[in-house]
Structures are given as C-alpha cells and as structure tokens.
Design a protein around this nucleic acid. Structure first.
Length: 195
DNA sequence: CCCTGATTCGC
DNA sequence: GCGAATCAGG
C-alpha cells in the first residue's frame, strides 16, 4: 500500500492550502481572476489577502506579461509601517480646485405639432473660478480653535496669522474631522495619488 | 469612494 | 507557511 504523505491531515484546518486548492488557485489566477474573486471561489474562509499571499509564496505573481517586465517601483525597504498610531489629520492649505458647472437647458418637446426636429440641446459649460473662500460660514457659526470638538468641522478658513481666521464649525457626521462638504475636499482632491 | 495587487511582519 | 494590516496605485 502506498500512503500519500500529506501534511494536511491535521483534521479540520481552516485555510490549509490543500493541493487541490492550490491548483484551483493557480488555475484561476492564471485565468486572470482577481484575488478577491478567487478568494470568493475558494470559500468564505479565504480572504483576498490570503490568496495574494499564497500567490506570492508560489512565486506566480506575474501572470500576464504584455510586453515589458513590470517596472514596479521597488521602494526597497519600508520603515516598518506596522501599526500606525496616528493617521495624522493634517489640515493645511488645500486650495479649492476648479468647479466645473454644467448647466443644461432642457428643450421643450414639441407636443401636438408635427415633426419639427428639436434644435440641438443647449449646453453651457463654464468654469467657476476657484474662489478663495470655498463656502461661506455665517459669523455666528464660525469657531475658534478652542471651540472645536469631536462634532465640529475642523476645516481651517483664512489666514491663521490674521484675525479673520476661523474654523468651519459645521456639524461633522461620523468620525470625520470635517463636515460633509469639507470632508470631500480633504479626502478627494489632494492625497490619493500625486504623492 | 470603489477597486486592484504588493509588501511587510507577527503569528 | 500563513494572512492581516498596510502600502501604493487605478
């Protein structure tokens, strides 16, 4: 009798990569499925991180090479990002981008009348100049630094060195340090890319 | 915001 | 070896 020596007979192991699972992983990965899709296919006990981790361990990270050899920027060594304590809500000078406003005039449909093609719909595109003050805060709503709390928008407005400096002060929903309006500003324009 | 893979490192 | 946490980019 030949006994298959497998080290996977530890009973009910969770995400133990049995051979058939690994094969399935390879297959799906080669077919171009994303890690999350493969994870879903393998079962709920497998996360996409697990898949990616296994993929890398198997050294099959590169599945499709169109032309060049993945000039993936290798940041060499990382300063051990483990456990970041403070996300750092750096509030700084974030100028407002341009707001593109697109106003379209709805064309009146010709009812009753026969035919008569409608004229080209009028679209007006204009660029609103980047206003210095992004939003107007009534004076009675303006807060100083000491008036801020967990539920006030901490978006700075004005020059900190002058008297007309204040914080937005509007109610911030969740754990967001900003109100809805400024939260979009803070997280959407800057950061993300362009680092 | 969503998503993707890549990497690191405690377990 | 494993994979969560994180990073980095689209």
């Amino acid at each position: 009798m030949k006994d298959s020596v497998l080290t996977i007979d530890s009973g009910a192991q969770s995400a133990g990569w049995s051979e058939d699972r690994v094969e399935l992983l390879k297959k799906l990965w080669m077919e171009g499925l994303s890690a999350s899709q493969i994870a879903g296919e393998l079962g709920q006990g497998v996360t996409r991180n697990a898949v990616i981790g296994k993929v890398h361990r198997l050294k099959l990270s590169a599945r499709a090479k169109p032309t060049n050899s993945t000039p993936r920027a290798r940041p060499a060594a990382r300063p051990a990002p483990r456990r970041v304590a403070s996300p750092t809500a750096s509030i700084g000078s974030t100028m407002a981008g341009m707001n593109k406003v697109r106003a379209s005039v709805s064309r009146p449909q010709s009812i009753g009348a026969t035919a008569l093609a409608v004229s080209n719909d009028v679209e007006v595109q204009m660029y609103v100049a980047p206003v210095a003050a992004e939003i107007f805060i009534p004076e009675d709503k303006r807060l100083s630094l000491l008036q801020l709390n967990e539920h006030t928008c901490k978006w700075p407005i004005g020059d900190p060195l002058t008297k007309d400096f204040y914080f937005c002060g509007q109610h911030s929903q969740d754990s967001t340090p900003y109100c809805e309006f400024h939260s979009r500003r803070a997280y959407h324009q800057v950061d993300k890319k362009r680092r």
